[in-house]
Amino acid sequence: MIKDRLEVVFRQSFEIEKFTEDLSIDNVPGWDSMAHVGLILALQKEFAISIPPADAIELTSVKNIIRYLANRDV
C-alpha cells in the first residue's frame, strides 16, 4: 500500500521506467539535492505527515523511504 502510493509520487516527479526499492538519489535522473526538497514536500502532502529536516537527509532511497514511512505509521 505504501509502496503503491509512493510509486505515484515518484512517477509524477521523475522519469522512471520501473519502480523498485533500489531506486536512489544516485541512480534516478533528476533526483538531485534540490529535487530532494521537492520530494520531501510531496511525501508530506501524500502521507499527511511532517518530516523534520534531520530525517529528510536520510530519505535518499526508496528502500529508506518505505522503511521510514512504515515506522511513521502512515
Binding site: 509524477q12 521523475f14 533528476g30 521537492g38 520530494l39 514536500l41 510531496a42 502532502k45
Partner: peptide, 12 residues
C-alpha cells in the same frame, strides 16, 4: 498546486 516537483519536471 500539483507541487513544486511536478512543476520542476515540466520546467525542465
Amino acid at each position: 498546486d500539483e507541487g513544486w516537483l511536478v512543476i520542476r519536471r515540466h520546467a525542465g
